Amino acid sequence: MAMTYRCALVTGASKGIGAAIAASLVEEGLTVYALGRSESSLAELATRLGERFRPLVADVRDFTGIARALGGVEIDVLVNNAGGISTVRPLYEQTAEETDEVIALNLTAPLQLIRMLLPGMIERKRGHIFNLTSTAASAVFPCTTGYGAAKAGLSQAGRILRYDLAGTGVRLTEIAPGRVETQFYLQAFDGDAAGLQERMYAHQRPLHPEDVAAVLLGALKLPFNADVAEIIVSPTDQAVGGHVYPSATPST
Rank of each mutant, 00 (worst) to 15 (best):
T249I: 10
D192P: 00
L217Q: 14
A150P: 02
L113Y: 07
T31K: 12
A8K: 05
S24P: 00
V102R: 01
I129Y: 12
D59E: 07
E51F: 02
Q187G: 00
G153S: 11
T11F: 10
A67T: 08
E27A: 15
E210K: 14
A20F: 09
P90Y: 13
T64D: 12
R124K: 14
A104C: 02
L78E: 07
L42H: 03
A202V: 06
G127M: 08
E230S: 12
R61Y: 04
N81L: 05
A58V: 05
A188Y: 02
V140H: 11
L217W: 08
V233D: 04
I160Q: 05
R48L: 12
R6K: 15
T99F: 06
V228Y: 07
I17P: 02
S38N: 15
A214W: 10
A176S: 12
G16T: 10
N225S: 13
A67G: 04
G195T: 05
A96L: 09
T252A: 05
R54V: 15
Y5D: 11
A139E: 13
G195K: 07
A214Q: 15
T31M: 06
R126D: 04
R171I: 05
L216P: 01
T168Q: 07
L186Y: 09
R205T: 15
V79C: 10
R199T: 10
R52C: 01
E98R: 09
E28F: 01
Y147H: 05
E123M: 10
T252V: 04
S24N: 04
F189N: 01
S86F: 02
M121H: 11
I21R: 04
A166C: 03
T135H: 06
E44R: 15
A239K: 07
D211T: 02
P209D: 09
Q94G: 03
L111P: 00
M3L: 14
T133R: 04
I114P: 00
F130G: 01
L78N: 03
T4P: 01
G18M: 11
S251T: 11
L56M: 13
K151W: 09
T133H: 07
R48Q: 14
D227W: 02
T144R: 10
P223Y: 15
S24G: 11
R52W: 02
I21F: 02
G65V: 10
T99P: 00
A2N: 13
Y163K: 15
F53I: 07
V233P: 00
A8H: 02
G65D: 07
I175R: 05
G167K: 09
R162C: 11
